[in-house]
Simulated assay, not measured.
Amino acid sequence: MSTELTHQDAPLRVAVIVASVREGRRGPAVADWFLRTAGSHGGLELDLIDLADVSLPLEMPGWGSAPSPAAAAALADVSPRLAAADAFVVVTPEYNHSFPAALKNLIDWHGAEWRAKPVGFVSYGGLGGGLRAVEQLRQVFAETHTVSVRDSVSLHGPWSGLTEEGEPRDVAVSEGAAKGMIGQLQWWGRALRTARATAPYAG
């Protein structure tokens, strides 16, 4: 019984992924704000993965084949961090009604690391606030057997909607949205962590 309680009470390990790698990106500022906001909720162990610091291979292996030694070396840091996570939060802009190629590359290089875990989204960009990128990501993550939580955080026009310190100008609305998304992520994260520990996922 004590082991079960310890497992249930353990902090939820959340990998926060900064999707944009472009020069001049606002992703790190948005991620910093989210990390501060999420850190105030308690019960979370946050791991920031900035794709600008990850040298992802550009060529995918053949179906069913193992990565080349060079690709395996490039993935050696990021893959274990994804595998250790109980949940994910993707911080993404919207590029041409979609999401960054670096993020798709990260998703495609991994399989079991995503399965039967929840993912939430913090998006930003223009009048749409990155929502079209999020809608596409929901379809992509569904294919990896990842559960996307319903609520998301959408920051509209980050170049004018964020202060120089990276804080949203409409703090009440943004923090309210973050609270709702984090609550759902925690519920699904704990439920799915228990389910994975109880029985293998049939995926």
Rank of each mutant, 00 (worst) to 15 (best):
A38M: 09
L82V: 10
A38W: 09
E94K: 09
L106I: 14
L103T: 11
V54H: 08
T37A: 14
L48Y: 14
P61G: 08
S98F: 02
V78P: 01
S55I: 01
A74I: 06
L48R: 15
W33Y: 09
F88S: 05
T37I: 03
A52L: 00
S98R: 03
L58S: 11
N105V: 07
S55G: 07
W33K: 05
G62Q: 14
A87N: 12
P61Y: 11
V90W: 01
V89C: 02
L75T: 09
W63I: 13
L51R: 12
G62W: 03
A71C: 10
R81A: 07
A38Q: 10
L58C: 00
G43M: 03
H41A: 15
P61D: 09
R81F: 07
A76C: 02
P100Y: 11
P57S: 04
A72F: 02
A52H: 00
S79P: 00
H97R: 15
A38L: 09
F88H: 09
V90P: 00
A87D: 12
L58P: 00
T92I: 07
L82H: 08
S55L: 11
R36P: 00
A76K: 08
A74N: 12
L103G: 07
L58I: 13
A74G: 05
L48H: 14
V90I: 15
A72T: 07
P57A: 06
E45F: 03
L44W: 10
D50C: 10
E59V: 15
V78F: 03
V91R: 02
L46D: 05
L106R: 12
W33D: 06
V90R: 00
W33Q: 04
S65A: 13
A83E: 13
E59M: 11
S65N: 03
D50A: 15
G64H: 04
L44A: 10
G39A: 10
P100A: 12
V90K: 00
E59Q: 10
A70K: 13
Y95H: 15
G39M: 09
A74M: 14
G39Y: 08
T37K: 06
L82E: 06
A84K: 12
L35P: 02
N96F: 04
S40M: 08
G43D: 04
S68D: 13
W33G: 04
L75V: 07
D77F: 01
E45A: 15
S98T: 15
G43V: 06
G64F: 03
L48E: 14
M60R: 13
A84P: 02
S98D: 11
S65F: 01
H97C: 06
V78S: 04
L35K: 03
L56R: 14
L82W: 06
A72L: 04
L35T: 08
R81G: 07
W33C: 04
A87Q: 12
L75F: 05
L48S: 08
L48C: 10
A52V: 00
P80Y: 06
E45P: 01
A87T: 14
S68P: 03
A102N: 07
D77C: 00
L82T: 11
A101Q: 04
A70G: 04
D50M: 10
F34H: 05
A85I: 08
R81T: 12
A84C: 03
K104M: 14
L106A: 13
V78L: 04
G64T: 07
N96L: 04
A70C: 00
A70W: 00
A71R: 11
L75N: 08
L56C: 13
A73I: 05
G42H: 08
L35V: 13
F34K: 01
A73K: 14
P100I: 12
L103Q: 08
